[in-house]
Design a protein around this nucleic acid. Structure first.
Length: 215
DNA sequence: ACCCAGGTGGCCC
DNA sequence: GGGCCACATGGG
């Protein structure tokens, strides 16, 4: 199948409005780091704790002690690394964009992306999810799930992040809303059916998928 | 007990 | 450019 039919098939099965709920860009950025290799339900709990502690702002998060932050984010795993990444990001944003984090997104896209990638703990996928879900920029997130789903459906076979991203950019136009919906739907699909050990029974793609090993 | 999770940095070749 | 490993908790 091709990418357009994958999109429309998924679109008729999933509703992904408000898929990444957040009250601010900073909250999206915090979630993007916390969710790395981590179940989203744990992220939700921790975000709510951070909100209760009033830590969902660059200023407050850069001022809280590392030890406190570590304890609060512990349920998300890799908590020592992530606590340092979060505090460093918060300090950077507070120093460079004291008026509003959203100033970060008002420069050229490539510059914003490079700036994000320069921060420890923010790799390509995290940078792009921030650009897409916080900045509403036309950048597709070529996550591991995406390469897996594209390969098994026969849409595209590649492990290269930039190749996959370029492919989607060239096939789907440049509407951020389309990118975020596709990404969300692919994640929902993959979590349920397209695991390392696949469970194809009940998959909405059914016979449109070219995956040959069907348990 | 097992597998999985909305990856990244550091190191190596 | 890629391959490997540590990082760590919690859910199904």
């Amino acid at each position: 199948m091709d990418l357009a039919s994958l999109y429309s098939t998924l679109d008729s099965y999933y509703s992904v409005d408000e898929w990444w709920p957040a009250e601010s860009s900073f909250e999206v950025m915090v979630g993007a780091i916390l969710t790395q290799q981590t179940n989203w339900s744990n992220v939700t709990r921790v975000i709510e704790d951070l909100r209760r502690w009033d830590l969902l702002s660059p200023r407050s998060m850069s001022e809280v002690s590392l030890e406190t932050l570590e304890e609060l984010i512990k349920p998300c795993g890799f908590y020592r690394q992530k606590a340092r990444y979060l505090k460093n990001m918060a300090r950077y944003l507070w120093m460079h964009y004291p008026s509003s984090v959203d100033k970060l997104f008002s420069k050229k896209l490539d510059e914003t992306r490079s700036e994000l990638l320069a921060l420890k703990g923010i790799g390509e996928e995290t940078a792009d999810s921030i650009l897409l879900f916080a900045g509403r920029k036309p950048v597709f997130v070529a996550a591991t799930y995406v390469s897996r789903v594209l390969r098994r459906t026969g849409v595209m076979d590649s492990d290269s992040y930039s190749e996959i991203q370029d492919f989607v950019h060239s096939e789907l136009g440049s509407d951020p809303e389309t990118y975020s919906r596709l990404y969300a739907m692919v994640v929902e699909l993959a979590k349920e059916y397209c695991l390392d050990t696949p469970r194809c029974s009940g998959c909405p793609l059914n016979d449109q998928c070219s995956f040959s090993v069907r348990p």
